[in-house]
Amino acid sequence: MRITEDTVKYVAALAKLTVSEEEQQKVATDLDRILDYIETMNGLDTDGVEPMSHVLPVKNVFREDIVTNQDNREQLLKNAPKQKDGCFAVPKTVE
């Protein structure tokens, strides 16, 4: 793999992270080494193998659309860093 500093910027943006200029080179080297290692997977022939995301056969679990939880807005908001009028507060997003 060749991870460039541009790739680092791109992945950081996807993960909603900021990587400072000073850190970029180190992060690129780290990711490069790790992805190089991950690519050793290519040594295993997987032609015709079905990808497996769950071990046990899982299927959608349905239930009746009934509200079972209580109104705990106040409690939920207690953990919010900022709140306003019973809602989570965020900076203005539309001018």
Binding site: I38, N42, M52, S53
Partner: peptide, 13 residues
């Protein structure tokens, strides 16, 4: 990467 890993996972299982 991701899909390959899931195939490897199937083989390991």
């Amino acid at each position: 990467f991701y899909n390959k890993a899931l195939k490897v996972r199937a083989i390991i299982n």
